[in-house]
Nucleic acid binder design. Sequence first.
DNA 1: CATTCATTTCAGTATTGACTGAAATGAATG
DNA 2: CATTCATTTCAGTCAATACTGAAATGAATG
Lengths: 198, 198
Amino acid sequence: MELNPVAKKFVLHWGEMGSTWGVNRTVAQIHALLFIAGRPMNAEEITETLDVARSNVSMSLKELSNWNLIRTAPLIGDRRDHFETSADVWELFRTVVRERKAREFDPTIEVLRECLRSGEIAKEDAAAQLRIKETLALMEALSSWASEMIRLEPETMMKVIKMGAKVQNFVRGSSSGSGGGSTGAGSTSSAGVSSGSN
Amino acid sequence: MELNPVAKKFVLHWGEMGSTWGVNRTVAQIHALLFIAGRPMNAEEITETLDVARSNVSMSLKELSNWNLIRTAPLIGDRRDHFETSADVWELFRTVVRERKAREFDPTIEVLRECLRSGEIAKEDAAAQLRIKETLALMEALSSWASEMIRLEPETMMKVIKMGAKVQNFVRGSSSGSGGGSTGAGSTSSAGVSSGSN
DNA sequence: CATTCATTTCAGTATTGACTGAAATGAATG
DNA sequence: CATTCATTTCAGTCAATACTGAAATGAATG
């Protein structure tokens, strides 16, 4: 398949982005290609289009399967495997969020909990313990927030996102209710590091 | 500075996470160390604590400055530079979101717009063009959502996050108002790839 | 303005991770 | 059950990135 200039630009850029997002370039390129192609492609075709080794494509497709981002789509009269991805970018987004949460957030939350469990040592430095506690609270909040979001229909999720910060109007006084503690977002030292560039 | 087991665990884990988040291990470790230490540290001290080369620390501190995650805190009677990070994890979170948006989202949005501008080629494949358009719409939505969020006080932001999906109750019928088009989240082909693991 | 202490730079090295090609495995067909 | 076509595996190579140590630069002190 010969890519037109726009498709090429899209695929190449997505590949570069993938690198900064923890998937390697080829994996991201293949996903971008399947997305832009909008139809099932076989490994051979991908190999030729992206000009990488057949085996690399095979590995990358497996990686994409592990991410639940592609599935095989058998075609009648063709015994080669064909691969496709969702054409709905909101659904892809949801999948990526789900996967990254499972790979990055959940294990980190577990480690933070372990850090807090071993209480004997923690007493050495109560302030440090508090910061770990707050970090855990942040990650738990984001984590369950993400879980709730990805449960929504793409359509609904989009509306929620687009609604954006208007939400804060409903939030005034609505408490940090659930988990209780660790609210005050304690500024122990240092009044604030980040500048402000928007 | 000799790290206690919990601090060590925290620093090491954060270092590993950094790798999957596009900062290198040492950079992430130094930031974790400053966070857990809760006081300004000089480069020498960091070098000894983490057992890496002095020059590596220097480079990594510069990198952390570029991220706006640390600042120097001059100490009287000590002419060495001392570095500290915010003790407020919500503020750190805000900084990271701001930076990543600027580095990853904004450039990608720009590329997607370019992809759509060159209209002549795009006509070749209307479906592909539509998918790019929807991708752009998603990224713009997330981007401005993030901008709004990081403008909030940590306290407020936390409440909004904790409020979570309850927001959807306010969203019913509240339109995809603003930008107009590209709502329908069009499922052109492929009904849905991702499985469902929570 | 020389000395001392601190930081940065940078060329070279080491480490990590991606990619290849050949060989092995698997799966359908006659 | 042999042949053909497709996929996967894996050891080796290559490329990218992180890290080091030595040398250069900078900044304060007497």
